[in-house]
Design a protein around this nucleic acid. Structure first.
Length: 897
DNA sequence: CTAGTCACG
DNA sequence: ACGTACGTGACTAGT
């Protein structure tokens, strides 16, 4: 027996299964709105089974749209074939393109269904003594099972997709008839989804019983008088013609005239990798690009060419000679490499250009370097003449600062450069940037890294210093590639005067940290705890049972099933139990208010009290958050481990947490300076709206002024409710508002909300103009910009998908505002930092929270620093409206209100 | 690893 | 008629 295998795939049914399987929970589409969930699922399923079976031959069969020969006869019965949903139909041509690029043979034959193709080719395979595997979502194919033909059937059970596999024996076991007899069963019972009428009144049970007894429809009718049940017999007699027709319809064709019997043409060959890459890239299938290791042009392995060229500096002498080269070329690329799995220093790589054509790379192994090498390097690092190129220089700067090296001459950071050019990327690893921009692979393809930079498999044994050397060489090349693009985009000032100097500011903030009163924090945690225990017991009592209050699922079943409270809102997995829902239910049952309190205390305890305790440095009692410069799409910075930008303030109970954030020691106090209404001022500036400008210029309360304009009354008559509604409108405008959301936010009718918005836009007419202009311009150019030419690309604006396009429009309106505000505060940070440094003050910038800066001021410098802070911030740039900054001091963050 | 929830500007 | 405000990060449960 020939053990060669062929897999034959029913393209239509697998695509269908992929579509319904995935779209139940998620809708996958590209940023331009091309739906791709079925395509994604199809490839997923296909590759899964390919690796499972690894067949030598492979083909995919598709139905054509026109009625098939088998079904022509059926047209007499006037049933419409069920059409495909549009969302699926548009994905069919895409999957065909993908299959072509994968060099997988597709078969479409007019007049035949995919089933018939499966039947015919599997018969060929059987006749050639081959094993056939049919991959299909259609149970009809079970009739094809035989000793050498297996059927793989993906089925969805609950939320999971499993695979049933049938061979001859399995069919007999499950149905009690042979695969061929399933045709007769189907002929009797019919199949509405496949438009097979069957004999009316005969269902699956009866049909199976009959065929088990008579083996076929023919024999059944020959022995019709042996059918015992009178009703069944009468039904059969009345529909004899229909039964035989149905059998013909249910019979899969196994001898299609036009199918080639030459199995050899289905032999699997390599993918057309370049074509596949370009298709996957368009579909944004990053997982598949990675999984298949695709790229559009062949990669050059940098490490390979470097093996000969780089020098590992193992002695002070070698180091000195390399430093001499740096002195001459006046530039150096530095790569500070930390092993991602632990956080210790691994290698420090310096790349020096001796001459243009003969680069030398030095790699210092940490064991050698220690502090000796650093001292030798100090001179070049501190020289402003020698330009430093690097990737993620914040890490290097922090390292230098711990060694008291005042690094100067920072010329380019490729990570920041990539962020300016592509702010919506989610990863900025040097190896990815080099692969995409330079077609250079730093790592041999055998070594794969996951998204956290962890090695997935140990492949070739590559000398780590070679990898490190490869990184420094691509840093130069990337910088050379990015710099002219940044210039061309008009982003010189943004990059060189804002982002690049900010790197050191953030490094300093991270290193300095924020002192915390540990005892106070522990006491706070205990306070939360004791209240939580009480609440917990009350909740269990009211519920009548113990359950996990933190589980939305368990809580939902208590509230909505046991206590029968009305369901307000649903999530895609069950009942919603969020604060908004609970607020609405709070009058209906006394358990609800306790759950609300429990939730908020739990949040405070777990995230803030215990969360901070877990992460703070026990030796210094300080928190060292990371400030990430390349995360947000708008230009803001983000804070992680811990996030210091979302420490509670709105509610008093949470705000108390701020009491534990204190100055480093008794010589310092905290200064908190925040911009007043920076986003609305930016809006006034960008739109040039006279009404809004005059409101700010006259130092009016903007929400009151807005209320007076929207409600058409003098400012003196504005009530507090009017002001708060106007405030909501002001915020909403910044986000690209809709009447629905505004009405929900402030609790008025949708009609009323719409009137507010219309009145707002009528009074601030330039705002209205701006909103439509920025969307139009964004659509035309493909991106929107901030005051300092920070870009955000918005392919969504051209999407045919309404939701996606609407999202793009809101983002087009919001990003210039949020992003410009981010530009401004970044300028302030750079100014404050350099001013403090220039005046050799002991005060430090320690935190930024989007529109506020927190400075730890040395007590004797308090006056000077608070003036400096206010002035740097207010004069960060010239707007058409004044920028006002409020500075407050205190012995804790809580007191700076 | 995702979903739900909730903290901030 | 669509589905319903922008930008973040952390924690917990549950698969």
């Amino acid at each position: 027996m020939n053990s060669e295998k062929i897999m034959i795939v029913d393209g239509n049914s697998i695509l269908n299964r992929a579509f319904y399987g995935l779209s139940r929970n998620t809708m996958l589409s590209t940023s331009e709105g091309i739906q791709t969930n079925a395509v994604f699922g199809f490839i997923n399923i296909l590759t899964k089974f390919l690796s499972e079976e690894n067949p030598k031959y492979l083909c995919v069969a598709f139905d054509m749209k026109e009625p098939t020969f088998r079904h022509l006869e059926y047209d007499k019965y006037k049933a419409q074939r069920k059409g495909m949903p549009d969302e699926l139909a548009v994905q069919v041509p895409i999957i065909k393109q993908v299959l072509d690029a994968m060099n997988i043979k597709r078969i479409e034959t007019p007049g035949f269904e995919a089933d018939d193709i499966l039947g015919s080719i599997s018969l060929c395979a059987e006749e050639n003594g081959m094993e056939a595997i049919l991959l299909t979502g259609d149970r009809d194919s079970l009739q094809l099972a035989s000793q050498s033909t297996r059927i793989k059937l993906p089925v969805t059970r609950g939320n999971k997709t499993e695979t049933d596999e049938y061979d001859y024996q399995k069919v007999v076991e499950k149905y009690g008839v042979t695969p061929k007899m399933l045709i007769d069963v189907k002929g009797l019972m019919g199949d509405t989804s496949d438009n097979i009428p069957g004999v009316p009144g005969i269902g699956e049970k009866t049909a199976l019983d009959l065929i088990q007894k008579f083996h076929s429809i023919e024999e059944l009718y020959e022995n019709i008088d042996r059918v015992e049940k009178k009703g069944v017999r009468e039904k059969l007699e009345a529909n004899k013609e229909l039964a035989f027709l149905s059998k013909r319809l249910a019979t899969i064709e196994r001898k299609m005239p036009c199918i080639t019997t030459d199995i050899q043409q289905y032999i699997r060959t390599d993918f057309d990798r370049e074509r596949l890459y370009s298709i996957f890239k368009k579909l944004e299938f990053k997982t598949f690009i990675e999984r298949f290791g695709l790229s559009d042009t062949p990669m050059v392995e940098v490490t390979e060419s470097l093996n000969m060229e780089h020098v590992d500096a193992d002695t002070v002498g070698e180091l000195e000679s390399c430093i001499e080269a740096i002195r001459l070329s006046k530039k150096m690329a530095v790569y500070y490499h930390t092993d991602p799995s632990d956080n210790r220093l691994d290698d420090l790589c310096i790349y020096a250009c001796k001459e243009e054509y003969a680069p030398a790379v030095m790699v210092f192994n940490n064991e050698f370097t220690g502090d000796t090498a650093i001292d030798v390097l100090r001179e070049v690092l501190e020289s402003a003449e020698i330009k430093k190129y690097g990737h993620d220089l914040k890490k290097l700067i922090k390292f230098c600062k711990t060694k008291s090296i005042d690094i100067k001459g920072i010329a380019f950071d490729t990570m920041i450069g990539a962020y300016i050019l592509e702010p919506t990327r989610n990863s900025y690893t040097i190896s990815e940037l080099a692969e995409e921009n330079l077609k250079k692979s730093i790592l041999p393809a055998e070594i794969l890294y996951d998204k956290h930079g962890k090695k997935l498999q140990q492949g070739l044994d590559v000398n780590p210093s070679t990898v490190c050397a490869a990184c420094v060489t691509v840093i130069y090349e990337l910088a050379e590639k990015y710099a002219p693009i940044i210039e061309g985009n008009g982003q010189h000032e943004l990059y060189y005067n804002i982002e690049l100097p900010l790197v050191e500011v953030l490094a300093d903030m991270e290193l300095w940290g924020f002192k915390v009163d540990i005892e106070g924090l522990k006491a706070y945690s205990k306070e939360m705890d004791s209240r939580l225990v009480i609440l917990e017991n009350e909740i269990y009592m009211l519920a009548g049972e113990n359950f996990n209050i933190n589980s939305p699922k368990q809580l939902g079943s208590i509230l909505f099933e046991k206590l029968n409270l009305p369901v307000v809102k649903k999530t895609k997995t069950g009942y919603s139990t969020d604060a908004e829902v609970l607020e609405q239910l709070s009058q209906k049952h006394e358990i609800v208010e306790r759950i609300l309190e429990y939730r908020s205390l739990m949040k405070l305890k777990s995230t803030y009290a215990d969360g901070l305790l877990a992460i703070l440095d026990p030796n210094t009692c300080k928190i060292h958050s990371s400030f990430n410069q390349t995360v947000t799409a708008t230009g803001r910075i983000s804070s992680t481990e811990p996030n210091l930008q979302n420490i509670p303030i709105k509610l008093e109970m949470g705000r108390k947490i701020r009491k534990v954030f204190i100055p480093s020691d008794e010589n310092y106090v905290l200064l908190d300076a925040d911009y007043s209404q920076i986003e609305l001022r930016v809006l006034a500036h960008i739109t040039g709206d006279e009404n809004m400008i005059s409101a700010f210029s006259n130092n009016e309360d903007i929400h009151t002024t807005t209320a007076s304009k929207v409600f058409g009354i003098p400012a003196g008559e504005v009530t507090s409710i009017m002001r708060s509604r106007a405030k909501a409108v002001n915020f909403g405008i910044v986000y690209g508002i809709g009447d629905f959301s505004l009405s929900k936010d402030i609790g008025v009718t949708r009609k009323e909300a719409k009137k507010y918005i219309d009145d707002y836009l009528a009074k601030y007419s330039k705002v209205k103009e701006y909103m439509s202009d920025t969307v139009a311009k964004g659509k035309e150019l493909g991106f929107v910009t901030t005051l300092f030419n920070r870009r955000r690309y918005l392919p969504e604006l051209k999407s045919s998908n309404f939701n996606m396009r609407s999202f793009g429009e809101r983002v087009a309106m919001n990003t210039p505002i949020q992003g410009s505000a981010a530009d401004i505060i970044k300028i302030s940070m750079v100014k404050v930092y350099s001013e403090l440094k220039k005046r050799k003050l002991k005060s430090r910038l320690i935190l930024q929270v989007h529109d506020e800066l927190i400075v730890e001021a040395e007590k004797s410098e308090l006056q000077e620093v608070s003036v400096l802070l206010k002035q740097c911030m207010e004069n960060a740039m010239e707007l058409k409206v004044p920028m006002t900054v409020d500075v407050k001091s205190g012995e804790s963050w809580y007191e700076t209100k």
